[in-house]
């Protein structure tokens, strides 16, 4: 049945029920789903870490200075990303792009440091099959590194469009993802490096 003649409201615009932009809601659901993916893996690691007290000696072979350097790199990269977000809200395209480039560069620095670490560890014979600890180490850091690559790629495309003043709100979305990658590392670092 046709009820269109009974409309009383303005229908020229698509109304949004909540004030939160839909992209932001979607990003937070993505974050929630990533929390359970990484969290699931970390839970498994923790249980086996409790089961195998001897892993403390193995964890001593990971390089704490390198890990700390990478923490610093990712924290700084996150800072750049949030500065890019606030610049994008001010419509300051140059500052936004500059900060995104910095964030990407630092993301690449992270990967390079990680690659150097992997190389040193594999040289010493600590491969993914050497011990269950190393299996978990490569699983967790490898999954995280894949997310770093994905994050850098996302920031790159967001930057391309932002430099043409298009889709500026996406800077924030890429930022939310990038901070998530940062947070995951904030937990992996103590789990795998310092609290050995």
């Amino acid at each position: 049945m046709d009820t269109s003649d009974t409309m009383t409201h303005d229908v020229a615009s698509i109304p949004a029920m909540s004030e939160v932009p839909r992209g932001r809601i979607a990003m937070w659901w993505l974050v929630a789903s990533e929390i359970v993916i990484f969290g699931g893996a970390v839970c498994c690691y923790l249980m086996f870490r409790f089961r195998h007290p001897e892993w403390g000696a193995l964890a001593a072979h990971t390089s704490t200075p390198m890990g700390a350097l990478n923490t610093l790199v990712l924290l700084t990269s996150s800072l750049n990303m949030v500065l890019a977000h606030s610049a994008a809200e001010r419509q300051d395209i140059r500052a936004a792009c500059r900060n995104m480039i910095m964030a990407m560069l630092l993301g690449c620095v992270f990967l390079v440091v990680k690659a150097i670490e992997y190389t040193a560890e594999i040289r010493q014979g600590y491969t993914i099959t050497a011990d269950l600890f190393w299996s978990f180490y490569y699983l967790l850091t490898g999954l995280h590194a894949l997310h770093v690559i994905a994050g850098v790629t996302a920031i790159f495309f967001v930057m391309l469009s932002a430099s043409k003043r298009r889709h500026l709100h996406r800077v924030e979305m890429a930022g939310i993802y990038w901070h998530l990658v940062d947070i995951v590392w904030l937990f992996l670092f103590p789990l795998l490096y310092i609290a050995g």
């Binding site: 809601i25 659901w29 949030v82 930022g175 947070i183």
Partner: peptide, 29 residues
């Protein structure tokens, strides 16, 4: 992590249902 979530990701200013989403994910773990 909480500082990054609150200030960099601006969860502090988001509505409660998004807090709930993140919180329930942690609860599931």
């Amino acid at each position: 992590a909480l500082m990054v979530v609150a200030y960099y990701m601006h969860l502090l200013w988001e509505p409660k249902f998004l807090w709930l989403a993140v919180g329930f994910a942690v609860l599931c773990l």
